[in-house]
Simulated assay, not measured.
Amino acid sequence: MSVSELPRTGPDGADRPGPAGRAAPSTGRAARTARAPEQQGSAQVIELPVPRAGHFSGCPARVAARPSADSVWAARVMLVTGALLVPWLVVLALTLPSMTLAWVGLDAMEAAGLVTTGLLVLRRHPLRTPAAAVTATLLLVDAWFDTTTSSGVDLVFALVLAAVAELPLAALCGAVALRAAREQAGAQRGPVGPSSSAAGRRQG
């Protein structure tokens, strides 16, 4: 019998762990070390790519929060012109007392339409399309009646006013209405994504 095989007893008679007994803690550490990769692997989080808005045809494109520079310029022209029409309404009311309800009322609607359309364009409100269309119609009607109901010097003044103010403003409001309608239609349809483009090529 070797020395390592001899039993070792303590003062109280209890057996002490021999060399074989001291190997148990190392066995426990090895087991814990073997389980560590499994615990680390279970804690890993798998991140999947999330498609951005507008990447596929089913996701609508994000609408710009701010109006373009052209839209801001058009809105400012409308606001300034609508504000300048207020003193013109006073002049018409004082010089044409017999036609105050007809002409002053029409010009008042034009001023309200220009100011309202300008504010809606700056806010990119969906109602800017019908507001601009209605304002353009009012300006065209005003220019028509001014030129067809005047004669002499009044006709010359009506033609100049139509060429300088009413018709250009009507064209501006019409352009704003068409552009806003196209933007809203494009936002509802959304861009054509890679999947729909590939499907179209396969069908072709």
Results as ranks from 00 to 15, higher is better:
residue 68 S to N: 06
residue 116 T to H: 09
residue 103 W to A: 13
residue 91 V to R: 10
residue 49 P to H: 03
residue 84 L to V: 03
residue 57 S to E: 03
residue 82 G to Y: 08
residue 76 R to L: 07
residue 81 T to N: 14
residue 87 P to G: 11
residue 69 A to M: 08
residue 100 T to A: 11
residue 43 A to Q: 15
residue 85 L to Q: 14
residue 47 E to F: 11
residue 100 T to H: 11
residue 55 H to T: 03
residue 73 W to G: 12
residue 45 V to P: 02
residue 110 E to Y: 03
residue 88 W to Y: 13
residue 99 M to A: 15
residue 119 L to N: 01
residue 45 V to T: 04
residue 72 V to W: 06
residue 64 A to N: 10
residue 43 A to E: 15
residue 71 S to G: 07
residue 108 A to F: 11
residue 103 W to Y: 15
residue 114 L to K: 01
residue 102 A to V: 11
residue 96 L to D: 12
residue 66 R to S: 14
residue 85 L to W: 10
residue 62 R to V: 08
residue 46 I to N: 09
residue 63 V to D: 07
residue 45 V to S: 02
residue 81 T to H: 15
residue 124 R to S: 01
residue 52 R to N: 04
residue 122 L to S: 00
residue 116 T to G: 06
residue 69 A to R: 08
residue 72 V to H: 10
residue 87 P to E: 10
residue 74 A to H: 07
residue 47 E to R: 12
residue 95 T to R: 14
residue 47 E to G: 13
residue 57 S to I: 04
residue 97 P to T: 08
residue 104 V to S: 14
residue 90 V to Q: 10
residue 66 R to P: 07
residue 116 T to F: 05
residue 105 G to L: 01
residue 57 S to C: 04
residue 44 Q to A: 11
residue 44 Q to M: 09
residue 116 T to L: 09
residue 60 P to A: 00
residue 121 V to K: 00
residue 45 V to K: 05
residue 66 R to T: 12
residue 46 I to V: 09
residue 56 F to D: 08
residue 90 V to P: 02
residue 99 M to E: 15
residue 97 P to S: 06
residue 47 E to H: 13
residue 84 L to Y: 02
residue 108 A to Y: 07
residue 95 T to V: 15
residue 70 D to M: 06
residue 41 G to R: 12
residue 55 H to P: 01
residue 60 P to V: 01
residue 62 R to A: 07
residue 94 L to Q: 13
residue 92 L to F: 13
residue 56 F to H: 06
residue 40 Q to D: 14
residue 66 R to A: 12
residue 109 M to A: 14
residue 71 S to E: 14
residue 56 F to S: 09
residue 61 A to G: 07
residue 60 P to H: 02
residue 111 A to K: 01
residue 77 V to F: 07
residue 61 A to D: 12
residue 117 T to W: 00
residue 69 A to E: 10
residue 110 E to V: 14
residue 57 S to D: 05
residue 94 L to P: 10
residue 120 L to S: 00
residue 120 L to G: 00
residue 42 S to K: 08
residue 109 M to P: 03
residue 66 R to M: 13
residue 116 T to D: 05
residue 118 G to F: 00
residue 54 G to A: 06
residue 101 L to I: 09
residue 106 L to Y: 06
residue 45 V to F: 03
residue 91 V to F: 08
residue 108 A to G: 13
residue 118 G to E: 00
residue 51 P to F: 05
residue 81 T to P: 08
residue 97 P to D: 07
residue 79 L to D: 09
residue 49 P to N: 04
residue 101 L to T: 12
residue 123 R to Y: 02
residue 40 Q to L: 15
residue 121 V to A: 02
residue 92 L to E: 15
residue 45 V to Y: 01
residue 118 G to M: 00
residue 87 P to H: 07
residue 60 P to Y: 00
residue 60 P to D: 01
residue 43 A to H: 12
residue 69 A to W: 08
residue 98 S to L: 15
residue 101 L to E: 13
residue 53 A to V: 05
residue 77 V to R: 14
residue 96 L to K: 11
residue 108 A to I: 04
residue 56 F to Y: 10
residue 87 P to K: 11
residue 80 V to K: 09
residue 95 T to Y: 12
residue 43 A to F: 09
residue 61 A to M: 08
residue 78 M to E: 09
residue 122 L to Q: 03
residue 94 L to R: 15
residue 97 P to G: 04
residue 91 V to T: 09
residue 72 V to D: 05
residue 48 L to M: 05
residue 122 L to N: 01
residue 78 M to H: 12
residue 64 A to W: 03
residue 71 S to C: 05
